[in-house]
Design a protein around this nucleic acid. Structure first.
Length: 493
RNA sequence: GGCGGCAUAGCCAAGUGGCUAAGGCAGCGGUCUGCAAAACCGUUAUUCACCGGUUCGAAUCCGGUUGCCGCCUCCA
């Protein structure tokens, strides 16, 4: 079956046929580097990170380009406010971006170009558009003449006349048409500039993506992505610029991710309901945040709330609990290296085959518009099957059964690699989780552990009353105990 | 004002023409356990906002109603 996904420009799911067999080129609009990343940036990053990794998993040779906008009004404003230049500001936030993204388990894209490294290319493209009659110069500014481009509006599903009837179009004396957008801005006092045929100035926002995508992926390339809000005007304008200049199709497939909402509203600076990535990662393990995002389809909006994060945390706990149990068995030091699927007998063989079916189910889900929610459902199925296997009374740790359990771990890691989940050692995961949760509740870990030790001694002495008293005390502090044959583990409810 | 999206159990969430409407959380009954917790087994939507229509057949397609949201301004 073919990999298919929703293409914004046609409004339907389509089979993916790459330009060149076995290869895929993806361009995604990255951040404007003037502030810390918030979880909305994280969602977009996760969506395309998973798409990037999935293409690789399916054997594609992927070139993934994600840019940094490092010259822009907001960066200039911040630089002026701090009495520094745009380079310092953008460098600072690119560094912070990389720190956050690394911690979030986002793989670095193949190429991460910056706008300021591509100014000459932008000047060439703008000149080209002027020559073709698609752009005009007014007092050192260059505008794109929207009416001159036939396909304007084809991505966002609008037409120029309808938009003209709209009530919220700014009036700019210099523009021939209110919808015309700026390609090159003349420099004002205190602004950075580059020399151009139209005088000193700097590029408009949209032009950089046309230039950098073409430079690294070609005039026509496979996939262009970004957040939903970029469809109009940003991506619409990129099409106008690129196709206007080359006369060729720009991106063949468009992928747009949905937003993170807070209380049913879009998370945005103007509403003041932003959660930044760093703070979110202090409160939740990055994989919990990924789980929360991946549990809904990438095009749907998702509501960021304590409840949904708590849900995602419980889900991760379930996954890691299974992985931890598998690890315990594998630590039994039984050599199963000589075992092959062929010398398994009935029960083990059946289980092995069930476990082995996970990757194909995972592919079936992911091939259908990157359906991570369905894929997660399949992983939960696999976890239930594995848990049932080793908790069955007849289960014995033999080299065959450990071989099967090891396969379960391998398979979970295999699909987890694509989703960016289960990257942690289970014990380390739970350790981190306890620390994080204890901190949220202001609990003292040493105190908890000494109480648990005391209770363990009471249990060894079969002093159930004392043991239960201690447990009740801990429960009142939201500490849940789990007695195992050799020790008691704990977690925060 | 223009354009577009969404509405599935107590909650989150897949499913977009046809086997019993995935999965997670919570709940209930059981197994296990000193008792718990976790795990496992069973159970929890005759029904997919509402009203009509198309079809042998619709949560899925069409029309209408209601509600929520997004884009049209920087925005992932």
């Amino acid at each position: 079956m073919a990999l298919r996904f929703y293409n914004t420009i046609t409004n339907k799911k389509e089979d993916f046929v790459p330009l060149e067999k076995g290869k895929v080129g993806i361009y995604v609009c990255g951040i404007t580097a003037y502030d810390m990343c918030h979880i909305g940036h994280a969602r977009s990053a996760v969506v395309f990170d998973v798409i990037f990794k999935y293409f690789k998993y399916r054997g594609f040779d992927v070139t993934y380009v994600k840019n940094f906008t490092d010259v822009d009004d907001k960066i200039i404003a911040k630089a002026n406010a701090e009495g520094t230049d745009i380079i310092e500001i953008s460098e600072r936030y690119i560094k912070e971006h990389n720190k956050d993204m690394d911690k979030f388990g986002i793989a670095r894209p193949t190429i991460t170009p910056k706008a300021t490294e591509n100014i000459q290319g932008m000047i060439r493209l703008v000149s080209d558009l002027i020559e073709k009659g698609l752009a005009y110069v007014v007092d050192g500014d260059v505008y794109y003449s929207v009416k001159k481009f036939q396909g304007y509006g084809k991505l966002s599903g609008r037409n120029i006349d309808e938009m003209m009837a709209g009530a919220r179009i700014e009036v700019d004396e210099k523009k021939k048409n209110p919808l015309d957008f700026i390609l090159w801005k003349s420099a004002k006092e205190g602004e950075p500039w580059w020399v151009s045929p139209w005088g000193r100035g700097r590029p408009g926002w949209h032009i950089e993506c046309s230039v950098m995508s073409q430079r690294f992926l070609g005039e026509t390339f496979d996939i262009h992505g970004g957040g939903r809000d970029l469809i109009f005007p940003h991506h619409e304008n990129e099409i106008a610029q690129s196709e206007g200049a080359t006369g060729k199709t720009f991106a063949r497939y468009w992928i747009h991710n949905g937003f993170i909402r807070v209380n049913q509203e879009k998370m945005s600076k103007s509403l003041g309901n932003i959660f930044n990535m760093r703070e979110a990662m202090e409160r939740y393990h990055p994989e919990v945040l990924r789980m929360f995002m991946l549990h809904s389809h990438y095009r749907s909006p998702v509501d960021f709330s304590e409840e949904s994060l708590a849900d995602a945390r419980l889900g991760m706990e379930r996954f890691y609990d299974t992985l931890r149990n598998i690890e315990r068995y594998l630590a039994m030091d039984v050599d199963f290296s000589a075992v092959s699927p062929r010398n398994l007998t009935s029960g083990d063989e059946e289980m092995y085959n069930k476990i082995r079916s996970l990757p194909e189910r995972f592919i079936e889900a992911m091939d259908d518009d990157f359906n991570t929610a369905r894929a997660l459902g399949y992983i939960f199925d696999a976890v239930r099957v594995i848990n049932g296997y080793y908790t069955d009374k007849t289960f014995k740790a033999t080299k065959e059964s450990l071989f099967v359990l090891n396969e379960g771990k391998t398979i979970m890691r295999e699909v987890g690699n694509v989703l960016g989940l289960f990257m942690e050692e289970p014990d380390e995961y739970f350790e981190q989780d306890r620390r994080r949760e204890a901190e949220k509740l202001g609990l003292d870990i040493d105190e908890i552990e000494s109480l648990i030790k005391e209770r363990w001694e009471a249990r060894v002495a079969r002093d159930w009353r004392k043991a239960d008293e201690i447990r009740d005390l801990l429960i009142s502090k939201k500490i849940i105990l789990k007695d195992m044959h050799d020790r008691t583990s704990w977690s925060v409810a």
